[in-house]
Amino acid sequence: MHVPDGFLDAPTSVATGVVAAGTVALALRGARRELDERTAPLAGLTAAFVFAVQMMNFPVGAGTSGHLIGGALTAVLVGPWTAVLCMTVVLVVQAVLFADGGLTALGTNVTLMGLVAVVLGYGVFRLVVRLLPPTRGGVLAGAAVGAFLSVPAAALAFVGLFAVGGVADVSLGAVAATMGGVHLLIGLGEAAITVAVLGAVLTVRPDLVHGAAHLRRAVELAPRPVVAPASGSTR
């Protein structure tokens, strides 16, 4: 769910807008390191992928379906900075073209889904990957934990913003419990989808997965055994 206009008061919206602008500025520099001058086309196409895959409905049981949010998955696939840019671009398009998420709340949405979800998801991923042996299973486990935690983390960040600048008099404990509980469930779905997608990419094109770079082994270059030329050669 994107935060609409008028949900948070003006100071909070402005503050998150400043945070979002700073994050995007940093991400623009960081993405250049990840993708060099290919940033624009590759980040653009990855954003188009995120946009499309958010429309894909995955059944999660009991007749309900959910869709991927994709912050952690994108960070593992293309690197955290590019992922921040991709999520930001998707949110801008959704706000400007589909009125999904308010224009004045754009900074809030970028902070929650671009910054908190991606950075926390990727941070947890790196931590888990470091603790586990460098295998495909380790990468998938890291992505699962990162994706799972990124969703309730964004929800709780939202509750925090709501506590600071919410316009309704609601008991915070109740909001935190409800949002946290619901988003733990959504996080489970996010983790399952992330693992399914990432596992398949690792099978087909492991070289494309930024978060699995440590699994790639350099091709060993061994000197070809030299056959000594016969003494009676024509050369």
Partner: peptide, 9 residues
Amino acid sequence: AASLFVRSY
């Protein structure tokens, strides 16, 4: 979804 990502990239 994975093949969609590979194709997009």
